[in-house]
Nucleic acid binder design. Structure first.
Length: 307
DNA sequence: CGAGTTTGACCTGCGC
DNA sequence: GCGCAGGTCAAACTCG
């Protein structure tokens, strides 16, 4: 089902905030070199830039609020579903009980597979009796420097490493972590580099945290990490209890700074269009975003039906 | 000194 | 039953 066909998801994103770094300095330089008589133009330009920045910040805030609402709706629907499942245990048995090792779903475009959270919901239905033992499995893909050998995925939680193993199908070692934030929390995490792309860390989460996200309790900003959705970077934090993604498009991407400052063509309308398309397709491809969106829509529809 | 990491040994499940 | 591979344990070690 294509959700984008149901409602207008165009958010009028200012997808190229980097143009501040890209265009503005060069223009400023130009005017500085042309002559001192252009001081007022520089000031005007600065004002325009400040206004633009304010506008983008407001837009970012709006987007953040929208995503928060989406995630809240998702969580409430999820809770409803959990309640419903526990009250009607018979329903789940319609699904196949057979389960081999969890299959890794690869998406169609041939890039790294991304099956984050998708298996967990299936598992929830397929093996209700195992649910309490292996409650939830989700995967998170994090792009890192290929030279970075540490198997650290900063997700805001506190992890204690308890083992490392080299597996047969992957030359890079797999690290095993347990949540150490709360002694009663039994969530585990496995981190291993992707076979296809050594710069991608695959973090597999098992179970659900029975405590609030440390980041929400005033943790450091390091709880956020840079995820790459397609080619569009964004600052994001992901918890296994629910997707919490904060897009901050006003932040320049440190990885691209050098590139953008040296590539004048990045500020072209074609490139902006390309960025918008990339972002849209990335969001459309992201199963967790789709899930959250679908949950939000169905939640709204349910509320409508009740009223 | 306590918390976290490393690493070899051990346990367990699965296929043959 | 055996062997293999993944997962876990725990002692030694490191670091702040």
């Amino acid at each position: 089902m294509e959700y984008t066909s149901l409602l207008d998801t165009s958010l009028d994103l200012n997808a190229n905030p980097l143009r501040f770094l890209d265009e503005a300095p060069s223009k400023e330089m130009e005017s500085n070199f042309i002559g001192l008589g252009k001081k007022t133009t520089v000031k005007e330009e600065a004002n325009v830039l400040v206004e633009e920045l304010n506008r983008v910040s407001a837009e970012n805030k709006k987007l953040t609020e929208m995503l928060t609402v989406l995630c809240e709706n998702y969580n409430s629907l999820r809770t409803q579903l959990t309640d419903y499942m526990s009250k009607n245990p018979g329903i789940e048995h319609s699904a196949s009980k057979k389960r081999k090792s969890e299959s890794i779903v690869t998406n169609n475009n041939g890039t790294n597979g991304h099956s984050e959270s998708s298996s967990s919901d299936e598992d929830f239905c397929k093996k209700p009796r195992e649910e309490h033992i292996k409650a939830k499995i989700s995967r998170v893909y994090v792009r890192t420097e290929a030279s970075d050998t540490s198997l650290v995925v900063k997700d805001g939680y506190q992890w204690r490493k308890y083992g490392q193993k080299v597996t047969r199908d992957n030359p890079s070692p797999r690290a095993y972590f347990k949540c150490s934030f709360a002694p009663s929390c039994s969530v585990k995490k496995k981190v291993q580099r992707s076979v296809e792309d050594q710069s991608i860390l695959v973090a597999t989460y098992e179970g659900e945290h029975n405590h609030p996200h440390p980041a929400k309790l005033g943790a450091t900003p390091s709880s956020n990490h840079c995820l790459t959705l397609g080619s569009v970077p964004c600052s994001a934090s992901i918890s296994s209890t629910g997707p919490t993604i904060t897009l901050d498009l006003t932040k320049p991407n440190p990885n691209n700074d050098a590139k953008t400052s040296s590539r004048k063509s990045d500020s072209s309308p074609e490139f902006q269009q390309f960025l918008v398309e990339q972002m849209a397709s990335s969001l459309a491809k992201d199963p967790s975003f789709k899930t959250a969106l679908a949950a939000a829509i169905s939640g709204e529809m349910l509320q409508h039906n009740r009223n």
